[in-house]
């Protein structure tokens, strides 16, 4: 009793904090106290769907920046940045030949805080670099070796998807840079063996005199929705860029992260 009486009153901030964390709302969200005890550090990871990506404990060498370079984490972060800024850009951008270019110009000049496109574009460049460096790190630490072979494969596909995301986005401003890069890029599809009308073997696929694979039915046409880079190509690339590829990438990322955990967490010497 006596000790209680001599104790000075709690500071205002502490009291407020205690009050907030004692409300029913707070308690309904966070099922544990501050993560300063072992028990709560376990709970904070286990009861949070996002933190749950991580294990509760991790080997010390796997936390060192010198070892991981945080490149995989940065890549995922950049993916989120691209998703967010991309969503905002979609409010102002119409994927038609008549509007696309002017919409991009307007974006820089008529919209407040007009660096959204800058962040989107530089973020895309940065993401390509971080993906490469992530792959390089994983190779140099031999982290693709058993039991992580399959996850390396998922990673390679994610690398390709990153490049495709960047490539499809390249067309959308509909400027000279855009259409010629895509013209050259998509003309390679014309030379796909068997499936492209200028590829080796395409001539063999014919019914009598009627060619099966021609400019209007080959792999390139499927990509562009036309015989050259025009209205159809812009729309197809837009849809692939905004919905198709991010969706696949998102699913594969879930697999990738899940497998990191299931294959024994971050790699380290035995």
């Amino acid at each position: 009793m006596a000790t209680n009486a001599t104790k000075p009153p709690e500071p205002f901030l502490t009291r407020t904090w205690d009050y907030i964390t004692d409300t029913q709302i707070w308690k309904s969200i966070f099922r544990h106290g501050m993560p300063s005890t072992s028990r709560n550090r376990v709970l904070v990871v286990m009861t949070n769907v996002f933190l749950h990506l991580h294990p509760v404990k991790i080997r010390k060498s796997g936390v060192r920046l010198k070892f991981t370079w945080c490149m995989g984490g940065l890549t995922f972060f950049l993916f989120l940045v691209e998703t967010f800024t991309g969503l905002l850009l979609m409010f102002y951008y119409r994927p038609t030949v008549a509007y696309a270019y002017m919409d991009i110009i307007d974006l820089a000049e008529q919209v407040p805080l007009g660096i959204m496109r800058e962040i989107h574009r530089w973020g895309a460049h940065a993401m390509v670099i971080t993906v490469w460096l992530h792959m390089f790190r994983v190779f140099m630490t031999g982290s693709y070796k058993p039991p992580r072979e399959f996850n390396w494969n998922v990673g390679v596909i994610l690398l390709v998807l990153t490049l495709l995301l960047s490539f499809t986005g390249y067309l959308l401003p509909w400027d000279q840079l855009a259409i010629w890069a895509i013209t050259v890029g998509s003309n390679m599809a014309r030379a796909t063996p068997l499936l492209g009308y200028e590829g080796p073997g395409a001539q063999l696929l014919a019914l009598g005199d009627v060619k099966m694979v021609h400019a209007g039915s080959d792999a390139r046409f499927a990509l562009l929705g036309g015989r050259f880079v025009g209205e159809g190509a812009l729309l197809r690339f837009y849809v692939l860029h905004c919905v198709g590829i991010p969706l696949i990438a998102g699913i594969l990322m879930a697999v990738h992260f899940w497998r990191v955990r299931k294959d024994g967490g971050i790699s380290g010497p035995v």
């Binding site: 993560p35 550090r41 904070v44 990871v45 933190l51 991580h54 294990p55 509760v56 404990k57 991790i58 080997r59 010390k60 060498s61 936390v63 060192r64 920046l65 070892f67 945080c70 984490g73 380290g268 010497p269 035995v270």
Partner: peptide, 21 residues
């Protein structure tokens, strides 16, 4: 290096990893 000086031991994800991230 990755297996000496106690690097083999485990450490808490919160706060060690989440704050790095």
């Amino acid at each position: 290096n990755e297996a000496s000086n106690g690097e083999n031991e485990k450490t808490w994800v919160w706060p060690d990893l989440v704050y790095t991230e």
